[in-house]
Simulated scan of single mutants.
Amino acid sequence: MTAIIVRHKSPFLQLRNKKSDVNEEAKQNLADKVNSGELLPVGYVDVANQKIHAGGGIWLLKRDYDFVKFRKSKRPEMFIKNIAVKIFSEETLKQCSVTGESSYAYKNSVKRPSLDMKKLNAVREISEYWMRFRKMSEHDIVQHSANVGRYIGQKIACLNRGPRKNLKRKNKQINNQAKKKSKEEISSEDETSPDDEKIMEHDRTLEHFSGDAKKIIQEDNKEPEKDDTDEFDDEIFNTIN
């Protein structure tokens, strides 16, 4: 009868092999982060490739960032919506949703895939970078950063509505603004300022003096009235002679 000898690896060898595997994985992850630029600060500019780091290893063309930064956006929500288009593209936004859930606002809405969380975080980080560039308060930065998902959801709804519905909505806003402006102008016309009252009083004074001047001129142009007593005296004088 032969005996079978089973040799087990010592716990020390198993731990050492596992540690080496973990080290290799950590080294690879670190190398990937370095290559992608994930460890670089948000806003770092790659001058050679003309790109700006949006965060999390997501890069954006510097000209696209500058276009949104200087031309398109004045308010934080507008910047977030426009920079999301540059990071995701319009087609991706149309086909996806922020959370991946179907919309409760529309009946029979189709469930769409969620947006890439890494890019979503990049939108948030580059938006915070822009808001700090604008010297906004930390309270406002935190508030707008918490609403990034809602702002992008509004942008997705706007893109899916189409240009005709957006145009009707914009025209309605313009008409409401025009009505509001006309009401303000009418109310401002009703209220007379002290300067306006002085001008009106000056005009009334000029009218008064001009009326008096007209009367004086008319009196000067009148022919002198004949005196009846003078004519009677002349007749008596002629008869006597």
Rank of each mutant, 00 (worst) to 15 (best):
N176H: 12
I83K: 03
K94I: 03
V123T: 07
A105V: 02
D233H: 06
G149N: 13
K180Q: 07
Q177F: 09
N108R: 15
E25C: 02
V45D: 00
M78W: 02
V85Y: 00
E125F: 12
D228H: 10
S89T: 07
K198E: 11
E24N: 08
F12C: 06
M1L: 14
K179L: 09
F209T: 08
Y129E: 12
G56F: 03
S182H: 01
D212N: 08
C158A: 11
F237G: 13
S10I: 11
D32L: 15
V45I: 11
A122Y: 05
A122P: 06
R71T: 07
S137C: 07
R112E: 02
Q218G: 09
R75H: 03
S10F: 07
E219I: 11
H202Q: 10
A146G: 12
M78G: 05
N241C: 03
P41F: 00
K111R: 09
S36C: 09
K170F: 08
C96N: 15
R161P: 02
S137T: 15
S210L: 14
I217S: 14
M131G: 11
G37M: 03
N23M: 12
S188P: 00
S137M: 00
F88P: 04
V6R: 15
R63K: 03
V34S: 03
K214Q: 11
T92S: 13
D116Y: 03
L159H: 03
S36I: 07
K69L: 13
Q28V: 00
L159C: 00
E191D: 13
V22S: 03
P41I: 12
S188T: 04
I58Q: 05
V123M: 00
M117Y: 07
R124A: 11
Q177I: 09
T229K: 06
K135Y: 03
L40I: 04
G211N: 15
K62R: 11
E24F: 07
Q28C: 09
A3P: 00
E189C: 05
K69M: 15
E184F: 04
D21A: 14
Q14E: 13
E90L: 01
D195H: 13
K18Q: 08
D212M: 08
N241V: 14
Y151K: 01
I83A: 06
V47T: 05
I236V: 15
E101G: 06
K27L: 09
E235S: 04
E24W: 05
E235Q: 07
A146S: 12
Q177N: 14
L206N: 13
N175D: 15
S114T: 06
L159S: 01
H139E: 14
E201Q: 10
F232E: 15
I240A: 06
Q14M: 12
V47L: 13
C96R: 09
P113R: 06
E125I: 08
A146E: 06
